[in-house]
Design a protein around this nucleic acid. Structure first.
Lengths: 334, 334
DNA sequence: GATTAGCAATCAAAACAAAAGAGTGCTAAA
DNA sequence: TTTAGCACTCTTTTGTTTTGATTGCTAATC
């Protein structure tokens, strides 16, 4: 579709613009981008690329900037996905070697590392519990009217929650409840904690609803809990596009809306790295930004999702290279 | 020190400036602030107040803005601390009635409520565990090399953590460890988890250091953990002072620095509400902002600290009134 | 036929200038 | 002691000009 020189010109413009944040002139490309032709020739190529929608102008006599179609072509066809230095590899490896006690922390550490290496803002969310299989449930009495439930899943996820009762509960009762819950749920996917289970337990047990109900409700609640973590929110403010108050304000608003962030991270279906450029974002509010996400999966089970959010003029090469490397490393860990 | 009319003029200027964010002119005060004199008289008073350091000018022919000394005088002597409407009282009460399973959540809810009512950004931090008395410790085996420790304190605080081992641990071992830890620590302040305890346990128990050491380390770690919560970061961006990129950037940077936020919240000693205006802040980075903090305490035990961070032109009356009311309500809860 | 030098045309950004307006400080009168 | 009056100061706004970067087109060149 695009001939060789046009590809080179487009790539040069995208990369130059990613570096400088200034519209790229025909002259700027003659010097150092390995294009063996004059600025006039490049101007002709640029005019063609603009006609086909890969480039935009900010005004009649300005240099060119990539359009979203241009970025998309760059991401699909032109970028290098090994744009990562030895130092970066070493740094990432050492960060991921941190011993974690809870599997959720791994995603957090990865998100933090990505933010540090790429200098972009990252957002992360923990594992989706409801895709997982219950390995064990433990109930521990913490007082006459308070207990803790601990749920272990096949992927090593541990979720715990405190449950309070309106009446006294005995150690004996907890034991029975423990037995019944495990009998019914061990080896089952988490979705099984639902209405039929509730009814079954009411039937099987002599205890009042006052005990069973809060347990089920609270367990459901904690399993649905989605904690969002933000890393390097301030980093974005050093980018020139954030000199526009409009953009900066919008950005803070977006980051502050937890539901939006959760939707953003949950919207990617695939196992692989997803790139959303501007309007490609499912969410209207993100249309001025680019988002790159990837899911950390083990045996098809979601162990958390990380998203990078930055300007459309994002360093896709670096971002994707780093994500690929982190993804590989995470897979190695378990 | 200040005569009556000067107080009135200062108060009017502070309140006017808090409302409008514009330098206040002598004319603006003649109309609606109950001052029975001409603008010329007010000009004279303003010149005096400026000479004594309560007011500043942005340039020779501009209106006046309060200096930090002016704000301080206002906060100490002039503000109303019952600046809270019936609707606000109702809203706060209803929010604080939310049933919480963990005592930490109460601080979070309070911080969220304050942010919603005042429209400022709030920061909160959970209870300081190390001031508390250990009521009970429970250890639960979650696998052959993994267990959970749950620590209960006298104030109702529950802290739990997962501990992983490099060797297999039996149910029997855990029982003994459970017994020993409780024997040694029940009724003791949390600081007792220290070197002497470690040595005692090594002596008393036949288990390898590989088991005792990770337990003590991990427990210490989780008790020191300070999670910072942010509410309404975006709200500040609607204020006119945040139209300056300099200020906005600074603000995001400050909020993003967790250690700074923790220091800020931990620096207040007193039980009561603390107001730091601009340079009064212990931290250099906060010198362009005002911070109002208060500790939620029960029986002298810290149950969390909340801070409001906003422009020096903060609505101190509203903020302090709301905080006082919330403080009272929290005390009622337990 | 593709490439390039040359140049007028375009437009943003910077620099400059002028006018308007808000507010003060001071003086002198009430 | 208070206030009316007014010159003076300084910011803000608005308009104009200049500068400079960059393009698109044309005609010459390879």
């Amino acid at each position: 579709m695009l001939d060789d020189r046009k590809k080179k010109v487009l790539q040069a413009i995208v990369e130059e613009y990613i570096n400088t944040a200034e519209p790229v002139s025909s002259n700027a490309l003659t010097s150092n981008h390995g294009l063996q032709c004059s600025s006039a020739t490049i101007r002709n190529e640029m005019a063609d690329l603009e006609k086909s929608g890969y480039l935009d102008k900010t005004h009649t006599s300005s240099g060119r900037i990539p359009s979203e179609k241009g970025y998309r072509y760059y991401v699909d066809e032109l970028l290098k996905d090994d744009d990562i230095s030895l130092e970066e590899i070493k740094y990432i490896s050492s960060k991921l070697e941190t011993k974690v006690n809870e599997i959720e922390d791994l995603t957090k550490i990865a998100a933090n590392t990505i933010s540090e290496v790429t200098h972009y803002t990252t957002v992360s969310i923990g594992p989706k519990a409801n895709e997982q299989i219950i390995k064990d449930i433990k109930f521990i009495l913490l007082g006459s009217r308070m207990m803790m439930a601990v749920i272990l899943t096949d992927t090593g996820l541990v979720k715990e929650t405190i449950i309070k009762f309106d009446e006294d509960v005995t150690e004996k009762q907890i034991e029975t409840i423990n037995y019944m819950f495990n009998k019914k749920l061990k080896g089952q996917p988490i979705e099984k904690i639902d209405r039929p289970l509730e009814e079954y337990l009411y039937d099987e047990m002599t205890y009042s609803v006052n005990v069973i109900k809060p347990i089920i409700e609270q367990i459901k609640k904690v399993l649905e809990d989605e904690q969002i973590y933000l890393e390097g929110a301030n980093k974005s403010f050093d980018l020139p596009e954030f000199n526009s108050l409009e953009v900066a304000k919008n950005f803070v608003n977006v980051l502050d809306t937890k539901e939006l962030m959760a939707d953003m991270l949950n919207s990617g279906f695939a196992d692989d790295i997803q790139v959303y450029i501007g309007d490609e974002n499912p969410k209207e509010e993100l249309k001025d930004f680019s988002v790159v996400t990837f899911k950390h999966k083990v045996n098809g089970k979601d162990l958390g999702t990380i998203g990078i959010i930055g300007p459309k003029r994002m360093d896709y090469s670096k971002v994707i290279s780093v994500m690929k490397y982190i993804n590989k490393k995470l897979k190695e860990i378990e």
